[in-house]
Simulated assay, not measured.
Amino acid sequence: MSPDTNDHGEGSEGGGETNPTQKRRLQQRLDVSEEVLADAVELYQTFRDSDAEVVHDRALPIAVLYIAIRQNGVPRQIDELAEVANVSPRRLYRTARAVGDTLHQGIPPSEPELYVGRLADQFDVASETETAALRVLATAKTDGYHVGRKPAGVAAAALYAVAVAEDERPDITQRALSEAAGVHIKTVRENYKELPSMSEHKA
């Protein structure tokens, strides 16, 4: 994907392909696979061949990566990608929507279950704990509670609720989870208090 974006959000010179250095930089900063990057490059090159007006938008390289990430079910928040592109999350999402509409590529909704696995790996929790958190989310989704809420925050709250119930991991705090999930601690706290399916886990 090119032009690449530097830390100031300015486009660097280059052609229509991603060179190995740019790909490694994206992999290191966002921890995504070669397969996801390859999908993003294909989307980028296809879009550059179109006559869309946003083809020179500096958010474009990260916008196509965002689409590829969502299509591959990778748990990454748009805020993380917006920081890399040095653009607002709103602008990045609007660019991604424009690309998706032009190429008839859907952007699947991000699911909190994806973030449970990511957080579980970061905190090295037992598989039983991860499974219990997923059950909490399954019940919550039946109630429609997750709609309109940050999936990472809901996932962090679910994992926290189970950790509190098990009372075996004092290191899994609301603050630690909020930092790992990339959300404000208030988001985790409010989701923990309000998520309907968590009542059975609370002391």
Score class of each variant (00 low, 15 high):
Ala126Gly: 09
Ile107Arg: 01
Gln22Trp: 08
Ser110Lys: 10
Asn191Trp: 02
Ala96Pro: 03
Glu13Asp: 13
Gly100Ile: 03
Thr139Ser: 15
Asp49Tyr: 11
Val116Tyr: 01
Thr102Gly: 06
Gln71Met: 01
Glu179Tyr: 06
Gln45Glu: 15
Gly117Ser: 09
Tyr192Trp: 07
Ser50Gly: 13
Leu37Asn: 00
Leu60Lys: 02
Ala180Gly: 04
Thr102Val: 08
Val32Ser: 00
Asp31Gly: 10
Thr173Pro: 05
Val54Asn: 12
Val154Gln: 02
Ser33Gln: 02
Leu159Ile: 04
Ser33Val: 06
Pro89Thr: 03
Pro3Phe: 02
Pro170Ile: 01
Thr131Tyr: 09
Asn6Thr: 07
Ser110Cys: 07
Glu10Asp: 12
Gly153Met: 02
Gly15Glu: 11
Pro61Leu: 02
Glu80Asn: 09
Leu60Cys: 04
Glu13Arg: 14
Ala203Leu: 12
Ala120Phe: 02
Val164Gly: 06
Val147Phe: 06
Ala138Phe: 06
Lys23Pro: 00
Arg189Met: 09
Gly11Arg: 11
Gly106Met: 10
Glu13Ala: 15
Arg25Asp: 10
Ala165Pro: 06
Val41Leu: 15
Val154Arg: 01
Val84Glu: 07
Pro3Val: 01
Asn191Phe: 04
Glu168Gln: 12
Gln122Arg: 13
Ala120Ile: 01
Arg25Lys: 13
Asn72Tyr: 06
Gly182Ile: 02
Ala155Cys: 05
Asp143Trp: 08
Val64Thr: 13
Leu134Ile: 11
Asn6Asp: 13
Arg97Thr: 13
Lys150Met: 09
Asp171Glu: 14
Glu80Tyr: 05
Gly144Ala: 01
Ala40Pro: 03
Asp31Val: 15
Glu53Trp: 09
Arg97Phe: 05
Gly14Arg: 01
Pro112Gly: 06
Ala161Asp: 08
Asp79Arg: 15
Val162Asp: 06
Ala152Asn: 05
Arg97Ala: 11
Gln105Ala: 11
Leu81Ala: 03
Leu134His: 10
Asn19Ala: 08
Gly11Thr: 07
Pro109Trp: 00
